[in-house]
Nucleic acid binder design. Structure first.
Lengths: 333, 333
DNA sequence: CTGAAAGCGCTAACAC
DNA sequence: GTGTTAGCGCTTTCAG
């Protein structure tokens, strides 16, 4: 590997001068500057970012701790984060849940000396949250957040639940199933609370056999669960899924069984991922304005990184909207 | 930030000893070792990976230069790469095309001192390819490859093109349109050659107005192009797309126009991305066995990183298969 | 087994 | 303007 020392030798200057033309070109006289530039070209030199980071103590990199890309919500989010960060001169390192615990991910994130972190995969009471919030490393929780404190951006999950449940109830459905994510996540807890409220008010509390908690990292139980429910004497006429990813997986199962949507059963999601709007899905869902959510997270994070306004609490709640498309329909006896 | 020096002081040992318990715990006597471990806990110490990399000269990180996640092929590939690399103890840094040129991406990749690189976004004659192949950094081209040389894994693109074109021709279609990616990419060139061959043999050379080259990074022209073709006096009865991403975007447009698939027009893709198999799409395509392709790339890359067998040429061509699903049908007059 | 010391490639004072 | 020097936080000889 060719280093700045090699360049210096080739150009007949000191190594510090090489560093200068890299970081502050005007500060070195054109003649020498060109000599250096030439040598850089010649030797095909590339500065070692690792070494640079070690001394500047900043990496111009943010970390994004994301859920699986099998879920289109995370794709949309990642896309917007990466692109905006890039525009602002920051690189994004991506970390996934997978088999590692958040604790382990957090260790490596810290080890990489990133300038800030966006987390979209935390359960509300994870013990590392304390660490994260006290680390001094700028952070934004995106979508999923701690039970208490932290900087976050989310939608009003309760309202999202209410909107979708009201919609389904108003369509005349009485046997309504719920596919929920695990309640240790703020998103799914809030959404379910909203749904529960509406269902209770409508005199239609959710029946035990019609409520299922899905591991949203794998979605692996969905097929079995949906298949089983649809075998009941009185199968549900509507299935509310608390994420688009679950809804889309659910549709795959139902269509595979030869059922029609929304003819036989209405389906709804929450997230309004890009994919949900495809003509082949036209999924009724509740809208996140996903692009905003990732971008707002980045904007805030970079503010913190720049101005060191780490103390200002940033807790942003967006108002979701109902997107009625073609997977939900009036229930007829 | 707490450093190993702090730990050393707290544990009453030298900083070198701290380093030892981290890298080679057996080499330090249990009493001291425990003291150090305790101090690490106490201080919540995390080793600075940046500093470590600077001296070990390895990062245990590979880079993946990928196309946009708007394309499900790249999602599937990325997913398999990240997971396998993680199992093997490597982190993956992800880089996207976006507005940067491959040259710029390559600069930053080199700067990050990654141990190896997987590239799936190269055009055949990009001048940086020479640099990359001569850099001494282990690399695998995935799917898209240089015109000459390099280590790569791909499917037999020509055969893929032949398979899909034969299928469409055998279904009785005569007015066949082609939505191709840009021919500077080996994938799209190979696929089109295969298609051309079959069409020529069938006496149905592609008509000028029915062939379009799409910027696969954005897919932005698809709507206009498809819409225009379908206004012809004799619109095509089949549209062959040389990637699933194009096919799925194409379906969105057609369905949005109120046309039926495959009733009014047959659609096919190439890639066999996971999404293509969804019941809502059931896209006829040609299979990559995507999981294998990402994994084979990682396996080979790690071999090179480990054994330094950089000289062995690794040029792997997989045989694709036709996956007939429900977007293609017999053409009736 | 363990401490002292050198040095990875760079930036950032500090002199001249 | 430019060279010299001192680290950034680690790993890795080299002594002992």
């Amino acid at each position: 590997m060719v280093s700045s020392k090699d360049v210096a030798r080739a150009a007949g200057v000191s190594q510090a001068t090489v560093s200068r033309v890299l970081n502050n070109p005007e500060s070195v006289r054109p003649v020498k500057r060109n000599k250096v530039l030439e040598a850089i070209q010649q030797l095909n030199y590339e500065p070692n970012l690792i070494a640079r980071s070690l001394v500047t103590n900043n990496t111009r990199t943010i970390a994004f701790i994301s859920g699986s890309m099998r879920n289109n919500f995370f794709i949309d989010t990642m896309d917007s984060i990466i692109n905006l960060a890039k525009d602002r001169g920051y690189r994004t390192m991506i970390f996934f849940d997978g088999n590692e615990s958040l604790k382990d991910i957090w260790s490596t994130v810290k080890g990489h000396m990133v300038d800030g972190v966006i987390l979209s995969l935390v359960s509300m009471d994870d013990p590392v949250l304390e660490d994260i919030m006290n680390s001094g490393i700028p952070h934004m929780f995106l979508s999923r957040r701690p039970r208490f404190g932290g900087n976050y951006i989310e939608i009003d999950n309760r309202l999202a639940g209410e909107l979708i449940a009201s919609h389904v109830v108003e369509l005349g459905h009485r046997r309504i199933a719920l596919l929920s994510g695990e309640l240790q996540y703020s998103t799914f807890l809030g959404r379910k609370e909203g749904i529960d409220k509406v269902m209770a008010e409508a005199g239609l509390p959710l029946e035990a056999g019609l409520v299922h908690y899905i591991n949203t990292a794998t979605l692996s139980e969905i097929e079995k669960v949906v298949w089983k429910m649809m075998q009941f004497n009185e199968p549900p006429t509507a299935i509310i899924c608390t994420s688009d990813a679950m809804a889309i997986a659910c549709m795959d199962v139902l269509l595979g069984m030869g059922l029609s949507i929304p003819g036989d059963v209405s389906i709804s999601g929450i997230d309004d991922s890009k994919l949900a709007a495809h003509q082949s899905f036209q999924l009724t869902t509740v809208g996140h304005k996903i692009f905003e959510i990732g971008e707002i997270a980045v904007e805030n994070l970079l503010e913190m990184i720049g101005h060191k306004e780490i103390d200002k609490k940033r807790q942003i709640v967006l108002r979701p909207e109902l997107m009625i498309r073609r997977t939900t329909a009036r229930h007829v006896e």
